[in-house]
Design a protein around this nucleic acid. Structure first.
Lengths: 226, 226, 226, 226
DNA sequence: AATGAATGAGGATTCATTCAT
DNA sequence: TATGAATGAATCCTCATTCAT
């Protein structure tokens, strides 16, 4: 019986790493967090288990890298879009909508990050942390800019706004992530935005009243009999 | 040959259950989620491993019961207090403050619920779910009441408000739960409340309108025809 | 297909421990240090792998316990014999002979102790260390007693004598433990004893002097004047 | 596309071998036996893992070569010294002292040889064996010479003396090699020598007595009356 | 001669849960 | 009701060595 063993072709580390990540993501999508075993990933990637460890320190590292790749895609995809959107409110809506959409499209990956990776003790030293921070920092930045432009009332903590937005969304979508029902991305985005925006926007009431009065007075005095 | 073994004294099931829960909570506090092993709980509770299974279906059940006990305490403690507080804003502040305080005082238990219990697939069929729902429903109720009273603008989803509040708080406190830094319960409660309240409160346009009408009348009467 | 699984009968911990030790020793004898796998030990002992870990912390512990059992047997066996032997020289010979015989009969076990267990970093905190110390201390004790009795010259360090005896034997028998040739227990015991004893025994100068005087007197009386 | 990779400069095999040996020894000194990995050796030697295998059959071979280099140094260093020492006792003391000093200065290397290399099954076919034999043979040679010169009693086995000396020393120094305490090279050398020498030296008592008696008898018979 | 990517075997260990006594 | 001995599944990781380039 001839041995059918064949050495995997010699690939560049980048290609091999990418292959393994793709395989890992596929296995993860199919099996979920608990049943994602290294041997299956190796098999799919067309390498031997041991080879995975040349490119990834361990399983935990592999999972982080998986999530990092996901974040990188998202951040890159959004950059151009966000740059093209004008107005604080519109930009916030985009970010909110985007997050709701990400969760909706990639519930497994979301669960991975929310439940398993983010709570890790040394998460803060992670590249994923940096990426996630960049991802959420967009809110803080938009808020800070809006504040400068007078669209958002001053005195607010931009990072608190960030936590309100992402926290709200994630709390709202837990049921979906547990496979309990669905949600409407567009509608929910509007609801969240509405609520948050009210909390943020600079008070216009006082100014309008003055304006109204001023214009009425102006009108009346114009009409004054000569 | 006399056996020197001593049988555990026969206790009432309630007492036994309580003992085990106390032991479990102690072990959990000391060892954390991953290193909480049944044998140590049994030892502390003064029973044998197998006996735990007479009172708890399995470890998962035991953990849920632990968390349920925690929630029951909180809900009960708060009932009277909340009843004594008047005003929608004040009541919301209490609930926000309360949640921030719970997390601050019981980080382990919070992590257990947020990270391990709530994401469970059949969490929804759980008594913990019901308790948690009762715990968070207080927000929805207060909001609904505030809406009726005209303090809160209509058209809002009370459950969305609930998600905004608890989501914000939990997102904000993740770092703390990872043992990264601390937070100021009072200060944070005020910040969150401020932001949320702005998003909720009914517009005071009615008042401005009155003012506008009054001043118009005044102006017009000044110009009364001679 | 009927399942043929059967629970192992419930045994006393002592019996079970002994069974596992016996199995371990058998596997060790057959396979040697490197190929002694837990699964085979379990199989032979009639238990499941996991059960071994109820009685032994880990494989290392199991190996130590194996060696300890061996030492206990030896020490116990010898106690009566040694008590019955009179004379420092005879007692030393017994100990030397005994050690040579142990190595000869249990080369695997000897190798285990010499090569793998004794060099362990925390060997000193081990029960095996205590037993080994008791085993070798017999030399120190006999030497100390012999010194008191004047059979052995004073000023010697009994523990050094211990090291000389056991060190010599072990150095001499390394080749045998590597499966290179054999050795003659009796003959080697005599050789070692001879060499060591010369190093130990008190000088008999007093006796020679007596002899000299006696013979001089004899000579002189022969020549008595007629 | 120009490759920026730099090929290791082409060195003479002797130099490469030496470099790798130096690197191996450094890694071994830092990491110890268990954590000495080929990749680190390669890195230090400025070559790639695979290249090591051009110069050394395998890791085992590399370790043996490491130890061999050590022995060669020692043997060479000692040759002149030993030639300059006169007297059997003095020469033995030098050898004993030397061995104690070697262990004291190179505990890692000693442990390597004693624990890992010497017990190997085919150690006897090794160059290290030959070197070690040469190293220890100095004892046998000195003993044989001393026997011829009448300083050492006849009937002894020179190789047994060798085993006594090296065995004593190694048994005595095990604790030190386990990092438990230290020892005094000079003092211990004297103690060992004292004990061993007594076991070796030719008995002068008996001979002297004979001599004394003979001379007395001769004297007396000369004086016999005619 | 050098590279370095790929190989691949191999086993200890944990602990929730069960069930015969 | 209590006991506690027995179960048993399930997998990550290392690293010396090879060999195509």
């Amino acid at each position: 019986m001839a041995s059918t063993k064949r050495r995997a072709s010699r690939l560049s580390p980048e290609k091999r790493t990418a292959d393994i990540l793709v395989a890992a993501r596929a296995v993860f999508a199919e099996r979920g967090y608990n049943d994602m075993v290294m041997s299956e990933i190796a098999e799919r990637a067309g390498v031997v288990e041991g080879s995975i460890y040349r490119y990834f320190r361990n399983k935990r590292d592999l999972m982080f890298r998986m999530a990092e790749a996901w974040f990188e895609e998202m951040i890159e995809d959004d950059a151009a879009t966000l740059a093209a959107i004008e107005g604080t409110r519109n930009r916030l809506r985009f970010i909110i909508h985007r997050h709701l959409r990400s969760i909706h499209q990639q519930p497994d990956m979301s669960r991975l990050v929310f439940q398993h990776l983010r709570p890790e003790p040394d998460y803060r030293d992670t590249r994923l942390f940096a990426l996630n921070r960049a991802y959420t920092a967009r809110v803080s930045e938009v808020v800070a800019a809006g504040m400068k432009a007078g669209e958002i009332r001053s005195g607010l903590s931009p990072t608190l706004v960030r936590d309100v937005i992402f926290g709200s969304i994630e709390h709202r979508t837990w049921a979906f992530l547990r496979n309990e029902g669905d949600y409407d991305v567009d509608g929910l985005a509007d609801q969240v935005l509405d609520l948050v925006w009210r909390g943020l926007e600079a008070p216009r009431e006082a100014a309008s009243t003055q304006e109204i009065l001023g214009r009425i007075e102006a009108l009346l005095s114009d009409r004054a009999p000569s």
